[in-house]
Nucleic acid binder design. Structure first.
Lengths: 136, 136
DNA sequence: CCTTGAACCTCTAGTGACTGGAGAGATTAA
DNA sequence: TTAATCTCTCCAGTCACTAGAGGTTCAAGG
């Protein structure tokens, strides 16, 4: 059995975060010591590792909760898991696309003015959406 | 003079958001009606347009506040404005790079398993960081 | 057995940038 | 005048934590 600090060391997840995951019902502890301190089993550690890795991949906690529910069930979780991961992948691609448009727009804006005196056209360009090539 | 709703229509910024900007000291209103309703001048509308456009470009409100302070001053705001915009551009590029790594990783994970029966390796792959090519 | 210091407990509040709702008052057009 | 719309303030919620206060428990050394 692990204490919360040992679990934190074993997974790289901070202690307050582990307690937060318990609060929202994502990671129950496997019991308490006589003095009311949390104790975790190996299964609990593995569950937290799953959560931590999925978080590192950017999945929101709701999606992680759904995946954890799936992995406990039989039936056809494979398709459902793919649906969740696929939706996340689509979301990531969408964010990349939008950030890339912003990058180009901001590059353009920072290049309209590269002098040291006179009124700064950068501020004007930032103020005026009409100068932009598209929507954001 | 605009009412808050007219300002909202003119800028595309929602009414509660305008009030929020006032709360945090970003956009004071230019007076009140006899019945205590907010009134805005053309200058106020332009200021909100600046804020809205900078937000659409992804700048955080802190950076926008700094830019608004700059645009009111003389001195050498041009260099400072470039510094703020440049930092934001670097941040965007960093986020794109990280999202692209995640995209590749998630692509790999979703491809380890494309069947309909048996245990889903997608869930295993999500659980196991060691299968990943790098850090995230 | 006792002490010390680290780890742990609960609870509250704060982050960024809003969004939504309740319940009451103001404005405007017919 | 009346009805419809708009606006007011205040409070709570979002997401995923993070930080702090003030108190309790644990493990190791003497």
């Amino acid at each position: 059995m692990f204490s919360i600090g040992q679990l934190s060391q074993a997974t790289g997840v901070k202690v307050p975060t582990i307690r937060y995951y318990e609060d929202i019902g994502l990671l129950p502890c496997d019991g308490r010591s006589a003095g009311n301190q949390r104790r975790y089993s190996v299964a609990g550690r593995d569950r937290l590792r799953f959560i931590a890795h999925a978080r590192a991949l950017g999945l929101p906690l709701d999606a992680i909760r759904a995946l954890l529910d799936l992995s406990g069930r039989d039936g056809a979780p494979c398709r459902d898991a793919h649906a969740i991961a696929g939706a996340h992948l689509a979301d990531i691609r969408d964010r990349i696309a939008r950030l890339t448009r912003l990058e180009r727009e901001l590059e353009r804006i920072t290049q309209v003015c590269d002098h040291d005196d006179g009124p700064c056209r950068l501020l004007e360009a930032l103020a005026d959406h009409d100068q932009c090539s598209g929507a954001h």
